[in-house]
């Protein structure tokens, strides 16, 4: 057993045990770690978003960092004062909208935050409408409309290719096409699920059940992998029992 001598590892081990202690029951040690997590997370994003978004996109573009001596590049304010038009001056509106968002902290004038919210909702709608149409709708349809019988592969078969591989590819494509079409039939509610259509919708449910089961299993395994990582940290990095 080789206990770690690093202070950071001891802090991390203490916090890991604190969160895990909830498995026994809710206790002050867990509550302390939980409160710490909330504060640290909020602070982490507070700082990260300042340096990653506000500083380069707002303060640098406007030239506020230049005015404070934190940057050597001219911003919109410096260019305009030098008599040169700079379109980045429009970013001042983003700054005002950002401040308007903070007005939600004061209930009497909280409605002002609707303006920046409208920009966020508009951007998300416009952007997602196009990207989802391209990546989720068209591209998924394109990947589903595939040849079930590939003549090139049959030629390869005649030249001594593997029969198993050919049938595996054929069955795989068949499952993809039937699964997607019947799954979509299940989601189509404008027609009653009866007769041949009802039958295909029923097949679709079975495909969806396999999907839900697979997603569930996959999620559980990813959480297990995180748990193994934490145990490995405790018994390896901290206690030195695993090398």
């Amino acid at each position: 057993m080789h206990l770690s001598t690093e202070f950071g590892v001891w802090v991390a081990a203490f916090l890991t045990i604190g969160i895990t202690s909830f498995l026994y029951k809710d206790n002050p040690f867990y509550k302390f770690c939980e409160a710490l997590f909330v504060g640290i997370s909020a602070g982490y994003w507070f700082v990260s978003l300042y340096f990653q978004n506000l500083l380069p996109k707002l303060f640098d573009n406007l030239g506020i960092t230049r005015m404070l001596g934190l940057s050597e590049d001219n911003g919109a304010i410096q260019n305009i004062l030098a008599g040169q038009w700079d379109e980045r001056i429009w970013y001042v509106l983003a700054g005002i909208l950002g401040l308007m968002m903070l007005m939600r902290l004061f209930p009497s004038i909280g409605w002002i935050s609707r303006w920046p919210l409208a920009v966020v909702v508009g951007s998300t709608s416009g952007l997602y409408m196009i990207t989802y149409f391209q990546s989720n709708f068209l591209s998924q349809l394109q990947k589903t409309v595939i040849p079930l019988i590939d003549l090139n592969k049959i030629s390869a078969l005649a030249a001594g290719g593997s029969l198993d591989n050919y049938f595996a590819a054929f069955l795989g494509n068949l499952v993809l096409v039937i699964g997607t079409l019947t799954g979509l039939a299940y989601f189509y509610f404008s027609k009653e699920h009866k007769g041949a259509f009802g039958f295909s919708a029923k097949i679709g449910i079975y495909f969806l059940m396999v999907t839900f089961g697979a997603s569930f299993g996959y999620t559980v395994m990813s959480r297990m992998s995180l748990l193994i990582g934490r145990l490995y940290f405790l018994f390896g990095d901290w206690l030195g029992l695993i090398r």
């Binding site: 349809l141 499952v175 989601f187 495909f207 839900f212």
Partner: peptide, 19 residues
């Protein structure tokens, strides 16, 4: 295969709803 087929049906449905 089975999971991809189901996910595709869900994704196409989501994208239509989102659009």
């Amino acid at each position: 295969f089975f999971n991809v087929a189901g996910q595709r049906a869900i994704m196409i449905g989501i994208s239509l709803g989102l659009i």
